[in-house]
Design a protein around this nucleic acid. Structure first.
Length: 287
DNA sequence: AAGAGGCCCTGATAGC
DNA sequence: TGCTATCAGGGCCTCT
């Protein structure tokens, strides 16, 4: 579900609630997430104060006392929910992603604080929680992950080198987290539309001018999505509170059959399947 | 050895 | 209404 902008929104709201707070307890109701919850998971988190919350591409990184890091990845369907305590009862107040009422099923992990708790819900269980025990190990964990579009190292020369003689198409390149991180299927479609590049174009064929556009629009699209609070699609039925609004501005994603938003282009948006991911484009604008 | 596709899993929706 | 098939925001693993 969440790509870089959604994880950034979650990070910001989570930070407000949990920074400098101490974890009282952890409840693991289902340890079978993408990866099995580690054996000493609870031990490493219990009674630890949260010192910092950061985001690395689509990962949340929570730093705790004692050089312990909790990595959370939300996979396709993971959401975090803030529940406030009143007279020893936890009330749903606000979720970090969708602001929906806490679903009845698939609440796998609860992180309990004195005045509230954070509940992790994930129907598909593609997400995971992982404990990392040192700075060194953390550095190592993210070693293979490519730069995010906001990084200095996501530069013209970086892309020029990575594109050189490579047969990969540009859509798959943007989705490969080892090459550039944080972009998922929605934003890959959007970035290529604004860059006027056909998703099937081989990266070795991409021009200098197009490289510049990819860099420009990767930042622009992601930044704009963050400003709009991310994209909330496929909402649950009972929603209260804050949603993201970027889905209202999709140029091509999920817009099959609609008219291309480019001025004076009257062609329809088409849908292709590339490596089993839905791909939307305007054949006339994207060459 | 790079690159494409299968697969992990549940739920929503479309079509019959 | 109720069945079946298809699809979904990710990414690891296995094939070729």
């Amino acid at each position: 579900m969440p790509e870089l902008p959604e994880v950034e929104i979650i990070k910001q709201s989570l930070e407000k609630k949990v920074k400098y707070k101490t974890i009282n307890n952890i409840l693991v109701k289902n340890s079978n997430l993408r990866f099995k919850i580690q054996k000493n998971f609870i031990h490493h988190l219990k009674n630890k104060k949260i010192l910092n919350i950061s985001r690395k591409s689509k990962y949340l990184v929570i730093k705790l006392e004692g050089n312990i890091f909790l990595i959370i990845h939300l996979g396709m369907s993971g959401t975090l929910h803030y529940l406030k305590k009143k007279k020893n009862i936890f009330y749903t107040n606000l979720s970090f992603y969708n602001s929906m009422i806490l679903p009845k099923k698939h609440n796998h992990i609860e992180i309990i604080f004195s005045e509230f708790k954070i509940v992790y819900n994930d129907p598909r269980r593609f997400g995971f929680f992982l404990i990392i025990k040192s700075d060194h190990e953390l550095e190592n964990y993210f070693k293979k992950i490519g730069p995010e579009p906001f990084d200095q190292s996501f530069s013209y020369n970086y892309l020029k080198n990575k594109f050189h003689r490579k047969d990969k198409n540009i859509k798959n390149f943007l989705l490969d987290q080892n090459l550039v991180s944080g972009i998922g299927n929605i934003y890959a479609n959007e970035i290529l539309f604004y860059s006027k590049i056909n998703p099937l174009k081989k990266v070795k064929e991409i021009s200098k001018n197009e490289i510049t556009k990819i860099i420009k629009y990767s930042k622009k699209v992601l930044n704009n999505a963050i400003k709009k609070g991310g994209s909330s699609i496929k909402n649950f039925k009972n929603i209260t509170g804050i949603n993201g609004h970027f889905q209202d501005e999709f140029a091509v994603y999920d817009q099959k059959g609609k008219t291309c938003p480019t001025l004076n282009c009257n062609k329809k948006i088409i849908k292709l399947n590339i490596s089993n991911r839905s791909t939307y484009l305007c054949k006339s604008c994207q060459k």
